[in-house]
Design a binder for these strands. Structure first.
Lengths: 229, 229
DNA sequence: GCTAATTAGCGTAGACTATACGCTAAATCG
DNA sequence: CGATTTAGCGTATAGTCTACGCTAATTAGC
């Protein structure tokens, strides 16, 4: 029931008019799974929990979804949705910046997706549309295909890395305090403890850090691109 | 037995001379877990498998490790090891480049660590040393503390993002082919399908993509830093 | 050397997972 | 009215992690 990439991609649903009509739908299942993940985290998403929410038997889910792996992949592709349209004529720099900000907004809205995208997993059509828009943002430049791809991955990697401390307890939390509390930390981790001491690690203004990093990346791209479009 | 950060950080093992002596050690357990992950992937690492390799009962592991979560955290911190010493006087640019290349080498050697580092998890002392060295590489610059931190995270994010397609089947694999095989792909994902058509997505020369991205990031940093040290 | 204290090893059991199989119910087609 | 097709789902199986409590091995103090 639906590992067919074609159906997932192009929406050739083609509901067969024979047989018992479905009460459940894949969309409902995925939506409920996303709701659980948003509220309680990805690891609280189990087939049982999803079935309870939909008031159906656990095995009924498998009529609409191949298994948990596919369900999780669908969660991501559904939650991220189609990429924003960047075809406006603002020039590549602002287009890439918008792409980066939109990506960041997604991970802030659905923090559970962050570890997910690093996993080896099937890619969905919406995610492809994001890649496509990212590449499109660089269309006006004279970068080669491989360079454009590399550029999108630089931006994407930067966004993910920057969002992580915003989204996860451990980074901003008491963890650093434990490390830096020991007096020997000054000797062993001098740079980190200095940063910690002056409050630079508190992540109180994540937007500023993000914009700083973004401008760094864009500056680097601009130098490689040469001219602005 | 040992969620004590202190012991983990500073090696204050302080084996108590009373009681039955230990036949197992945390180091052995972690080493065996790493061996499994290297050979078969992280998800093949179970307490049972580790115990089998060590020829001991499953619950014996819990005398040396708090639980699976801590074990996995220890795997990463042990596998990555202490950061390379970058205190040579090559200037910040080459120091950051070395840091990035070393980070990439780690993920290539232990691909299972890639999804791991994106998870919300306890950070270990070796990982802190990497952060510290990364910050140290930028010591000669006039960047503020927060900016240095942001810079390290840009580089780190870039490395992770760039390594992912090198390490995972799905990215270089038949997945893209499925998407791009359909004639409608040209219309819906024009930029991606163009890249796919001319072979730019085959990831045949990952080093080149990596170096391209790295230079982009370094150029961006250089512009923010102004002078080279 | 004996006893108490301390620690390591680990078997059992419980509470979770995901999912393969096969049955039953509900719909349409001929 | 069958025959066919599909949906819903109960049961059972094979995993997972780990809390608890017992036994064994060692040392400290007497």
């Amino acid at each position: 029931m639906g590992q067919d990439v074609r159906e997932l991609l192009w929406g050739d649903a083609a509901r067969p008019p024979r047989g018992r009509p479905a009460g459940l739908s894949r969309e409902q299942i995925v939506a409920e799974a996303i709701a659980i993940a948003d509220a309680e985290g990805l690891q609280k998403v189990s087939m049982k929990r999803v079935a309870e929410r939909l008031d159906c038997g656990v095995m009924s889910l498998y009529r609409h979804v191949d298994g948990k792996e596919q369900l999780v992949a669908l969660m991501h592709d559904t939650a991220i949705g189609p990429a924003p349209d960047l075809s406006a004529d603002r020039g590549w720099r602002e287009a890439v910046a918008e792409w980066a900000r939109a990506t960041r907004a997604y991970f802030l809205a659905h923090p559970w997706a962050l570890p997910l995208v690093t996993e080896d997993r099937p890619v969905g059509p919406n995610e492809v549309s994001w890649l496509d828009q990212g590449l499109g943002a660089l269309e006006s430049t004279r970068l080669s295909g491989a360079e454009r791809l590399a550029a999108v991955m630089v931006v994407n990697g930067f966004v993910r890395g920057g969002v992580q401390p915003e989204v996860q307890e451990s980074y901003a939390g008491a963890q650093w305090f434990d490390f830096m509390a020991d007096p020997r930390a000054r000797e062993r981790f001098p740079n980190t403890s200095a940063l910690f001491a002056d409050g630079s690690m508190s992540y109180e203004t994540p937007e500023l850090s993000f914009e700083f990093g973004l401008q760094v990346v864009l500056d680097g791209l601009e130098r490689r691109i040469g001219d602005a479009a």
